[in-house]
């Protein structure tokens, strides 16, 4: 029997990027359907987060994500532009956010088209893994979307005029994440059990095997 799981995920989370390749491979190798649930990043959900957090957190995170990427054999470069516009000195979140709402709605649209994991993987690889300057320009995003088996222009047309509906879905995803027992991303939920962090992917597989996970034919 196919196992069902939900992956709560944000485009501004480097750990979400680092987990996605392994979750994509898992869903290709094993009989599990991972339903993608994009949420807005913590900077949007709680703009005070970055001023409250320990000042050591960001410098540590930057070192940690670089070595995890190396260990996993993935590219990593700080996104240009940052999907969330933030003043890195004052850590103030800009009221003007040209990228994150659009990206997150695209994630929801990709999920509704049944290609959520592939889309998150391709687009987060573009943003976090490719080192490209200006991932939002030219046809970078369109090509990444094509690699996930989707059509960006077609998705754009579906989203136009339906932004509120997609934002309701995103708001519900955020509620469902908390109801499942966590607030951070990436969080994979299987059988009502949340697994937070890119360092819990192996444990997720272990749990799914206990739940009767089978290889795909």
């Amino acid at each position: 029997m196919t196992i069902k799981a939900q992956l709560y995920w944000s485009f501004r989370s480097p750990y979400s990027y680092l987990a996605t390749k392994r979750y994509r491979q898992m869903s290709e190798t094993w009989d599990v359907d991972i339903d993608v649930k994009p949420v807005y990043p913590i900077a949007i959900r709680n703009p005070a987060f970055f001023s409250d957090v320990n000042p050591l957190w960001i410098p540590y995170l930057l070192k940690d994500i670089a070595r995890i990427a190396e260990y996993e054999g993935l590219g990593l470069a700080f996104p240009r532009p940052d999907p969330v516009v933030m003043n890195n000195e004052t850590r103030e979140i800009s009221p003007d956010q040209p990228h994150i709402f659009w990206l997150t709605r695209l994630g929801v649209e990709a999920a509704s088209r049944g290609k959520g994991v592939a889309f998150l993987d391709e687009v987060s690889t573009l943003i976090w893994g490719s080192g490209v300057d200006g991932w939002h320009e030219g046809d970078h995003l369109a090509q990444a979307t094509t690699r996930a088996g989707l059509d960006l222009e077609d998705m754009r047309q579906s989203i136009a005029g339906n932004e509120d509906k997609l934002d309701d879905i995103i708001a519900n995803n955020q509620k469902d994440l908390e109801a499942a027992g966590h607030w951070g991303v990436p969080t994979l939920v299987v059988d009502d059990e949340p697994f937070f962090g890119q360092d819990r992917v192996e444990m997720v597989l272990w749990r799914m095997k206990k739940l009767g996970l089978k290889k795909r034919d």
Partner: peptide, 21 residues
């Protein structure tokens, strides 16, 4: 006081399964 109320329950759950794992 500052942390999410979900933190302690999640931590306990995570430690139980980490130990088993």
């Amino acid at each position: 006081e500052k942390t999410s109320p979900l933190w302690v329950p999640y931590l306990i759950r995570d430690c139980r399964r980490y130990g088993e794992f």
